[in-house]
């Protein structure tokens, strides 16, 4: 399983890539694998104000459904509309084409406290 070094991760298995005060968010390779074939992704509207730790969207497989939580607070800047027609991109390219939303962060340092790849790997090992 692949956890790129340049990303930050949450306990709920979201990943974040920070570019200045913009946070790009998706779900990790672990999460997409656990969920199975993604059949549907529900994303917020652009402009929605998000609070860290609160659900912003949903990903569904045939027999499971999972909320996706905002890793940081801020405003939705852009959503990946490709996912609405082809949610399977989350399975095939979780870290690149499968990104879900971009958040304009209220606090540009908000992501600093999230786990790095090594800590995330340890978190998964611990969850068993």
């Amino acid at each position: 399983m692949d956890f790129p070094e340049e990303l930050k991760y949450t306990e709920e298995h979201e990943w974040v890539m920070v570019e200045a005060d913009l946070a790009i968010v998706g779900i990790s390779d672990f999460a997409q694998e656990a969920l199975g074939d993604v059949v549907f992704a529900e994303l917020p509207e652009v402009g929605t104000v998000l609070e860290a730790g609160k659900a912003f969207g949903v990903v569904e497989s045939v027999k499971a459904v999972s909320d996706v939580y905002a890793p940081v607070s801020g405003t939705v800047e852009e959503i990946n509309t490709d996912l609405l027609d082809a949610p399977e991109i989350i399975n095939t390219s979780p870290y690149e084409d499968g990104w879900m939303i971009k958040i304009r962060m209220a606090d540009a340092k908000a992501a600093d406290n999230l786990m790095d790849a090594e800590a995330y790997q340890a978190h998964i090992d611990e969850e068993g």
């Binding site: 549907f40 569904e60 497989s61 045939v62 027999k63 499971a64 459904v65």
Partner: peptide, 11 residues
């Protein structure tokens, strides 16, 4: 049966 994630046995 499809779109079952709306239903009680999953959600």
């Amino acid at each position: 049966l499809t779109l079952a994630t709306r239903e009680q046995h999953i959600r």
